[in-house]
C-alpha cells in the first residue's frame, strides 16, 4: 500500500486488511479452541451479558427505588400494624426482615426474565444466537447479572437493618452471602421460566401468580414451627421457606440483652427435626440449578 493514496482509498484498503486479518484470527482461534472459543470464549460471553445487566441496572435508578419501595413499605406498615395489636413491635419487624430481603431480590429475578422476553421480541437474542458463543454461557451471564443486581438491591435493606430492630453485627455479612445465593436461585428460576415461556404476557401472569403466594407461604410473615395443618404441609413443600429460615437463623439476635423467644427462630421441621442451614440453602439452590441446566439444554436446542 503506497502512502500516496488518497484518504478515501486508504480507509477502504485498511478495512480490506482488517476484515481479512480479523477473519483469519477468528478462524484460527476457532479451530484451536473448538467452535465457541473454549473456556475463554465462554467466560467472555458470560462477561458481556453480565455487563449488559449492570449497565441496565445503572441506567435505571427509578427501577431500584421502585423495587425497594414496595418491600420496605410492606415491612414498616405491616410491622407497625401488627405491632399495634399489643405484641412486641420491634421483634415482629425483625421477624419480617428476612422476608423483606427475599422480596427485594425477587424483583430483579423477575426483571431478568422479562428482559429475556423482550430480547426475544426485539431480536437481540437471535443476534446472540447466530454468534459463535455457547448458549449456556449466554444464560449463565444473564443469571449472574440478575444475581448481582439482586445483591445490590439487598444492600440498602441491610443498611437499614437498625431501623427494623436488627442490630448491626458481623453476622449481617453472612446474611448478605446467603441472600446473594438466594438471589441466584430466584434468578435461575426466572430465567428458566423465561426460556420455556414464549409470550411476554404469559410470563407476566405466571411470575405475578407465583411470586406473591411463594412469599406468603414461606414463613416470611408468620412463624411456621408448630404448623401442622395443610398450611404446614404447603410451607414445608415451598423451597422459599427454607431460604427464609436460613436467613432468620443466620441473622443476629434482635435484642442481645434478652433471650430471643423460641417462636422467632422456629422454622420448618421434618418430623421434629430442623434441617441445618446449609441443607436449607441447598434445598433452594440445587433445584434451581437443575432447572437452569434443563433450561440451558432447551435454549441450546436448535429446532
Amino acid at each position: 500500500m503506497s502512502s500516496a493514496t488518497t484518504s478515501e482509498s486508504t480507509s477502504e484498503s485498511s478495512i480490506d486488511m482488517s476484515t481479512k486479518t480479523t477473519g483469519a484470527v477468528i478462524d484460527e482461534a476457532g479451530f484451536r479452541d473448538g467452535p465457541f472459543g473454549g473456556f475463554a470464549g465462554d467466560l467472555r460471553t458470560v462477561r458481556i451479558l453480565w455487563r449488559r445487566e449492570m449497565v441496565r441496572f445503572l441506567h435505571n435508578r427509578a427501577r431500584l427505588v421502585m423495587g425497594l419501595a414496595a418491600p420496605l413499605l410492606f415491612l414498616f406498615v405491616l410491622g407497625n400494624g401488627i405491632g399495634s395489636t399489643g405484641g412486641d413491635l420491634g421483634l415482629y419487624q425483625a421477624f419480617l426482615f428476612p422476608g423483606t430481603l427475599l422480596m427485594v431480590v425477587q424483583g430483579p429475578a423477575v426483571a431478568v426474565g422479562t428482559v429475556i422476553m423482550w430480547d426475544r421480541q426485539s431480536g437481540f437474542l437471535r443476534q446472540m444466537l447466530v454468534a459463535p458463543v455457547r448458549r449456556a454461557a449466554v444464560l449463565a451471564g444473564i443469571c449472574l447479572g440478575g444475581t448481582t443486581t439482586g445483591a445490590l438491591y439487598a444492600l440498602p435493606v441491610l443498611a437499614l437493618a437498625g431501623a427494623m430492630g436488627v442490630p448491626y453485627h458481623p453476622r449481617l455479612l453472612l446474611v448478605l452471602g446467603e441472600i446473594t445465593l438466594l438471589a441466584f436461585a430466584l434468578t435461575a428460576l426466572g430465567v428458566s421460566a423465561a426460556v420455556c415461556i414464549r409470550r411476554p404476557e404469559t410470563f407476566q401472569i405466571v411470575s405475578g401468580l407465583a411470586m406473591a403466594p411463594a412469599v406468603l407461604l414461606s414463613g416470611a410473615l408468620f412463624p411456621v414451627g408448630g404448623l401442622q395443618s395443610w398450611l404446614g404441609m404447603v410451607v414445608r413443600a415451598n423451597p422459599l421457606s427454607y431460604g427464609v429460615d436460613a436467613l432468620r437463623r443466620t441473622m443476629p439476635d434482635p435484642d442481645p440483652s434478652a433471650p430471643t423467644p423460641a417462636w422467632f427462630r422456629a422454622g420448618p421441621e421434618w418430623w421434629g427435626w430442623a434441617p441445618p442451614v446449609l441443607l436449607e440453602l441447598s434445598l433452594v439452590v440445587v433445584p434451581s440449578l437443575i432447572l437452569l441446566t434443563l433450561a440451558g439444554r432447551r435454549f441450546s436446542r436448535i429446532d
Partner: peptide, 23 residues
C-alpha cells in the same frame, strides 16, 4: 459489543469498527 462477542482482540476490534462505520 459485536466485536467482543466474536472474540476480536481490542486493537483489531477498534480498527475494524472504525473502518466499517466509515465504509
Amino acid at each position: 459489543l459485536q466485536a467482543e462477542l466474536y472474540g476480536l482482540p481490542g486493537p483489531a476490534a477498534r480498527a475494524a469498527s472504525t473502518a466499517l462505520l466509515d465504509l
